[in-house]
Design a binder for these strands. Structure first.
Length: 558
RNA sequence: GCGCCCGUAGCUCAAUUGGAUAGAGCAACGGUCUUCGGAACCGUAGGUUAUAGGUUCGACUCCUAUCGGGCGCACCA
């Protein structure tokens, strides 16, 4: 249950009766920073005091006076400058835990308005070495999609492959001039990647070009791209030859990561629409000729966005505009979310402005900027090698895979996506502290209790077993469980899966404290044992579900 | 030159968007252990939140300046 939302209606009533403007109550209710301040706190008194020109303590007192204390709360305390501390009664909390146990959705309600989202993520460049930046976009985007879907929203995931750009010109040039045929037969993707790198080395630097140095290789690559775009038979055939091998290589990675896309409409898919897009933009006066190219000036002094180059080729701005139009017309989404490298902020800022001017404002467009590290997406392979397992060889592979992939994903997800990202192996392979392994271990130990005691977890998924919260550890665990929906909601405020990892970490810690201090199988009596088994099973389910929203699996044994 | 982002413990990161005494994990030191899985738990130490001002009941968070770093700025995507 989302407790802040739930209690806000009560507070709204009290504020109304007390004669205070009922603005922004929800944002002033939050989990208390310290358990001595109760479970939740209301921070609105200070703000209201300023408006009403009354001391904040007086405001707090007045709110409490008009607050019809619900039966599930202990008496409200006023603390500090005017904080209201709210404490939930254990019996009520216990009841909510029982309800949660009986609910396959773990108490998470669907929002009143279900929306449609298109999520654009991963989007690697085909025929170019895959970059860890794409890995991060892939992992974050996938988690976002899973979370929105869990709430009941319609989510369309679309992998906008870079399969039509200049990098193909580079590969085509390399293929024609410096191909190692044997290598291509053996490992085509590796050879193409090599060609890409080798050809790039022949390019002049930006400084040299600025000085007017001619760049024959780069020009030749541009010609190859242009020929392909104009329908040159040889180049198109090569494109058709390269695409399947490149795609199967990429698919292998997605398979490993457990990431699926509803659609993979790459740039090439939108080629038929580009002429029309540019005509539209011209006709509407948005775009105009400039230095031989067709450009859109959002402000007169800023650099324009090009929709057609002076050689007649279209740009990725053109493709992205066509993509928005296509998505809007086909799916009518409420929002399109782009989980893409933060260095493309300027591009997206321009893209969104142009799209809104061109197509109207009905669709929200958001760039969920992710920061990127250096390289190496094979960290998962190494993690596997490090993992020890007491189980059979079969299990070892499975355990290594789940733990390794989990570690890599978690390392990406637990960090705020807007923070600078420092890649290091140690961090990725860590198995202590705030890591996927810690959660998976907590889960496995939890399941072991049921195996050892001979209890069936399914028997604890109903509301008939009384939940007893006698100790601080039991209550603390119950409160964390109770906050599941709240945490998920929080993570969607600004689309940050790190909020989910934060919650799971808190939950796993609360469980560890409980596990350490509250014997389950050797509980003092049968009632407590049953209650603790229910708490254990619910913890396992929330951990499993939470990790699933991150795209991470759990293991019964590890 | 213009623009965007960032600077928090030795290291890697949090801080619910302006709330109470800035929190975790590594690493360090000490402790728990015939007890449901030690991939665990508890504790100690570690801070002028880059610096200097400002805004207000209250600032890591907002404003200004300075220093330091990253990134982006017309025919690459």
């Amino acid at each position: 249950m989302n407790f802040p939302l739930f209690i806000s209606t009560y507070l709204e009533e009290a504020l109304g009766k007390a004669g205070f403007a009922s603005v922004d109550i929800l944002s002033q209710i939050r989990a208390s920073t310290d358990s001595k301040f109760g479970d939740y706190q209301f921070n609105g008194s200070m703000g209201l005091a300023k408006e009403a020109k009354i001391p904040p303590r007086k405001v707090a007192e007045k709110i409490v006076e008009f607050f019809a204390l619900p039966e599930f709360l202990e008496p409200v305390e006023i603390a500090g400058p005017g904080f209201l501390n709210l404490r939930i009664k254990p019996q009520w909390l216990a009841g909510k835990i029982q309800e949660m146990a009986a609910d396959p959705r773990l108490g998470v309600l669907q929002p009143a308005k279900v929306k449609t989202f298109v999520i654009d993520f991963s989007s690697p460049n085909v025929a170019k070495p895959m970059h860890v930046g794409h890995l991060r976009s892939t992992i974050l985007g996938d988690s976002l999609a899973r979370t929105l879907r869990f709430f009941g929203h319609t989510v369309i995931t679309d992998n906008h492959l870079g399969d039509w750009g200049t990098q193909f010109g580079i590969i085509l040039y390399g293929y024609k001039h410096m191909l190692d045929e044997e290598a291509f037969k053996r490992e085509p993707v590796k050879e193409l990647a090599r060609l890409y790198v080798e050809v790039r080395k022949l390019f002049k630097t930006a400084e040299e070009i600025a000085k007017g140095v001619v760049d024959p290789v780069q020009n030749a690559c541009r010609d190859e791209t242009a020929k392909m775009h104009k329908g040159d038979q040889t180049n198109l055939e090569l494109w058709r030859k390269f695409m399947p091998v490149c795609l199967s290589e990429i698919d292998l990675i997605y398979q490993r990561l457990g990431v699926r896309f509803d659609y993979t409409y790459g740039e090439s898919f939108y080629q038929p629409f580009l002429n029309k897009v540019v005509q539209d933009l011209s006709a509407s006066g948005l775009a105009r000729e400039s230095e031989g190219a067709l450009a859109i000036f959002l402000t007169e002094d800023s650099t324009p966005a090009l929709v057609r180059k002076s050689d007649g080729a279209f740009t990725y701005m053109t493709t992205d505009l066509a993509t928005i139009q296509y998505r809007v017309e086909r799916w009518h989404p409420d929002a399109i979310l782009y989980v893409v490298d933060s260095r493309q902020s300027l591009h997206f800022s321009q893209l969104f402005q142009i799209a809104h001017q061109w197509l109207g404002q009905q669709t929200r467009l958001e760039h969920e900027a992710v920061r990127l590290a250096k390289e190496v997406y094979q960290a998962a392979y190494h993690q596997e090698g490090e993992t020890q397992s007491k189980e059979s060889l079969e299990d070892l592979n499975r355990v290594g895979e789940v733990v390794g992939i989990g570690a890599v994903k978690y390392a990406d997800l637990c960090q705020n996506r807007t923070s600078d990202y420092v890649f290091n192996w140690e961090k990725m392979m860590a198995m202590e502290g705030n890591t996927a392994t810690y959660m998976q271990y907590a889960y496995a130990r939890n399941r072991s209790i049921f195996r050892k005691g001979g209890f069936n977890p399914d028997d604890y998924r109903n509301s008939s077993i009384p939940v007893l919260l006698e100790t601080a550890e039991e209550r603390g665990l119950a409160l964390q469980l109770f906050r599941f929906e709240e945490a998920l909601t929080l993570s969607l405020v600004d689309n940050k899966p790190s909020q989910i990892t934060l919650y799971l970490w808190d939950l796993a810690k609360a469980y560890s404290v409980f596990f350490q201090n509250c014997p389950v199988l050797k509980a003092p009596n049968e009632e407590i044992r049953q209650s603790r088994l229910l708490l254990c099973d619910l913890t396992a389910r929330v951990l499993k579900q939470g990790l699933e929203l991150l795209g991470i699996s759990v293991l019964e044994k590890m």
